[in-house]
């Protein structure tokens, strides 16, 4: 083999759910995986300049990451993730991210696969074809790579469900010791336990979530996130069909809200959502309609115009409210 094909993976959206899988998969196929840098001012600005303003912040940021990557690799990997569970779907904007990216970023060469559990064989076939032709490899090697990647992903999810944050889980999956990342906690013994719920690609990106988790930890709170709940647990929590929405990510938020508000050890819930997130727009109604609420809940809406001070003020006010005995007893 000659020079390995470089495949760019933008550090946005599903990166935070499936990066270990993708990294292992493409490395096994003799490709070189290039991830874009952490979100910063330039990436955000590039993203904003290339997107229409109705898109949500995470997708605007995705475009910034793609621009950051596109000259450093042959292909940018961006999958069409349609459904990963029967009966619930991803937001149309998320499904169509490759189509939007193609339209707004000129000169982009994409490697896109279909992930659709409802049309499993059709999507599998088209995905195999795409990968085999673009990476010049064969289905047998793809299958072997898939098995390796699946194994790695399982280990990663094990750490995540054990309560590790994305960054920590990723480096532990790679076999390193637990690193001292900015967000990793000095574990306070008696601080309040705050559940951060929302979309994984929002609160795991320290830049666009205004480092919500780090800020909470700095103020002595212990943080659990909605990532730590397995899909099975979410399903069990939302067993009634009328408590589920059409959206996979929405169901995760509702399930997490219901689960954490039932848990005795959780003192408060912070729900972080991007401005204009339409699949989240009706979620509060579903959460309120579910039995077992009654925990203090802060809804934090962020977009590119949000200010750091505003977030700090709201977090501090929330923590102070929780610290009052009446709130803790309730």
């Amino acid at each position: 083999m000659g020079i390995p094909v470089r495949i760019g993976i933008p550090r946005a959206l599903f990166y935070y759910s499936y990066y270990p899988f993708w990294e292992t998969f493409f490395t096994e196929l003799d490709a070189k995986v290039v991830a874009s840098g952490r979100t910063n001012g330039k990436i955000l600005q590039d993203g904003l300049n290339s997107s229409s303003n109705e898109l949500c912040l995470p997708i605007k940021v995705l475009h910034g990451h793609i621009i950051d990557l596109k000259d450093r690799c042959e292909f940018v990997f961006l999958p069409y993730i349609i459904s990963t569970q029967k009966g619930s779907y991803y937001c149309p904007k998320l499904i169509a991210t490759p189509d939007i990216a193609k339209a707004v970023v000129p000169g982009l060469s994409l490697l896109s696969v279909d992930v659709d559990i409802e049309n499993f064989y059709r999507s599998l076939y088209s995905s195999l074809k795409e990968i085999a032709s673009k990476l010049r490899t064969n289905p047998v090697r793809i299958y072997a790579a898939y098995r390796m990647a699946m194994e790695r992903q399982r280990i990663f999810e094990g750490y995540v469900h054990g309560g590790a944050l994305f960054e920590d889980a990723l480096s532990m999956t790679r076999g390193k010791r637990k690193p001292e990342s900015a967000a990793s906690c000095p574990p306070a013994r008696d601080g309040p336990v705050i559940a951060v719920i929302g979309h994984t690609y929002l609160f795991n990106d320290a830049y666009i979530s205004f480092d919500l988790i780090g800020k909470l930890r700095k103020r002595g709170a212990r943080v659990v996130t909605s990532d730590a709940l397995s899909a099975g647990l979410i399903d069990k929590t939302l067993s009634a069909p009328e408590s589920r929405t059409h959206w996979s990510l929405g169901n995760r938020v509702i399930g997490a809200a219901v689960h954490f508000s039932r848990r005795k050890d959780v003192d408060g819930i912070i729900y972080i959502t991007p401005f204009g997130c339409a699949s989240d727009s009706l979620i509060k109604e579903y959460i309120d309609a579910n039995p077992g609420r009654g925990k203090p809940m802060l809804v934090l809406t962020v977009d590119e115009h949000s200010g750091d001070a505003g977030v700090v003020t709201r977090i501090e006010a929330f923590l102070e409210m929780i610290a009052r005995p009446a709130a803790r007893a309730g």
Binding site: E54, L55, I100, G276
Partner: peptide, 16 residues
């Protein structure tokens, strides 16, 4: 409508 999910996608594709 503002915040219509499918049409916002289309809105980004239409210029092309």
């Amino acid at each position: 409508p503002f915040s219509c999910m499918p049409e916002v996608v289309v809105r980004n594709i239409l210029p092309k």
